[in-house]
Design a protein around this nucleic acid. Sequence first.
DNA 1: CGATGGTGCGAACACTGTTCGCGCTTCGGG
DNA 2: CCCGAAGCGCGAACAGTGTTCGCACCATCG
Lengths: 251, 251
Amino acid sequence: MPATPDQPARPGRRERNRQQTERDLKAAALAEVRERGGVGLSLRAVARRMGMSPAGLYRYVDSREALLTWLIADGFDDLADALEDADTAAGTDVASRLRAVALTYRAWAIAHPNEFGLLFGDPIPGYAAPDGGPTVAAMRRVGAAFAAPFLAAIDEDRLRVPAAYDVAELAEPLEAMSDLGQHLPTPVWVLFLLAWGRLHGQTSLEVFGQHHWLFPDGCEPLYRAEVEALLDEVLLPSSGGGEPDGAGGTR
Amino acid sequence: MPATPDQPARPGRRERNRQQTERDLKAAALAEVRERGGVGLSLRAVARRMGMSPAGLYRYVDSREALLTWLIADGFDDLADALEDADTAAGTDVASRLRAVALTYRAWAIAHPNEFGLLFGDPIPGYAAPDGGPTVAAMRRVGAAFAAPFLAAIDEDRLRVPAAYDVAELAEPLEAMSDLGQHLPTPVWVLFLLAWGRLHGQTSLEVFGQHHWLFPDGCEPLYRAEVEALLDEVLLPSSGGGEPDGAGGTR
DNA sequence: CGATGGTGCGAACACTGTTCGCGCTTCGGG
DNA sequence: CCCGAAGCGCGAACAGTGTTCGCACCATCG
């Protein structure tokens, strides 16, 4: 958004300064979050870091909470970018794409633990994401990036969805997901949400330190095992018939 | 720990008062966490709640952080109790036991969202659970309660563990888990950790609000679907042969 | 009885988010 | 060109926080 559409191309000294300061602010706040964590974000520290008075920040941000939701939205966007990049870099094979996205999810979380905590950890005490707010919009991008390989698998008739996933009670609320892509039957969305949960669970347990006493060096092998298991369960071999059952070996 | 072992049974007016105050303090802090969240725990608020001066608290607690780790340990213990109770109440059938434990995990989390956040959300900024500390000990209880039905399934030869779970790199770190019960081969622990991750992932996404915009009324049906899928995948029908494949119906 | 040490508290310090009102710069229009 | 208006940044202040210090009190033990 280089300028508001009604002011076609009039940067103006002031406007440019403001946008520069906004960028500085975001960068400073992000740096602060990265090293101190979202909970420890201090407006005064941000102000100090950018050589500004604490009060001055309030020309750009309504409150500490507002700054946090701003960072949350940015974080979701960043994660979505990473997922999309990994997806496109993985070529066209549905299995590679799904694997790439899954591995990137964990990799991003480990590379940005504090941001991950901001996005998926304890919600800010009083705050609940407003339904139309920017955070949910950005999060839907993450969902969409995650769903893309699944949708591709459907197009190739390679998605194995268990009949048990056709939970009637979920049909109605899942209507809201149809704008992530095409309109799809309930069990597909259930499959997708459960798959996300599996990967997220492992990632979350690792990043939030629950596995640290077991695997001080990280849980990548464990995660890879989960990813391969997921691929085996969810993806049919290729288009060409073959054994329809596969509760066994992988790679 | 009713008394220090070197002071065999001398409650004494003072000792009793101290223990009573400790209980009050924990109760007040827990209440505060329940309504304000772990992040929002304020020592001064706790002090106010129990009619004490802020400074007085420091006779019982080293710091806010210490109080939090205390609550964390208690939280893990409470969760472990809930899981153990559900397990024993579920009778002897391995499937029922596993289902009960799994459902109780989510139920506890939903009933105690702030405590769940304390246990599994953003770690306290500076704090890392000391390896020998009380929090990891209590968390191992949770792990043990979770593992119990799996161990029972092994005893009955009803656990289906994929060969692909025999990840060599995990053999060594997983040695540390053998004191949760008997000493078991690597893939069993992998299966267990991945199962926990699946349930935790769904629970965490729900409790931390990521699914709220999709399912404002809660995700119990989704979670049940995951639990049943897990049971189907992981548990062999019963001792008596039968169809080895079960990607189909549930309850 | 007197000494000891646990107990509670008021005051203080450094820090936080946030508000207010003042000057200063930059802009838009007469 | 100049002048009002609006945006901007800041110092000061207020209420709140975690934490420390030193002083009273009182139960305990010699």
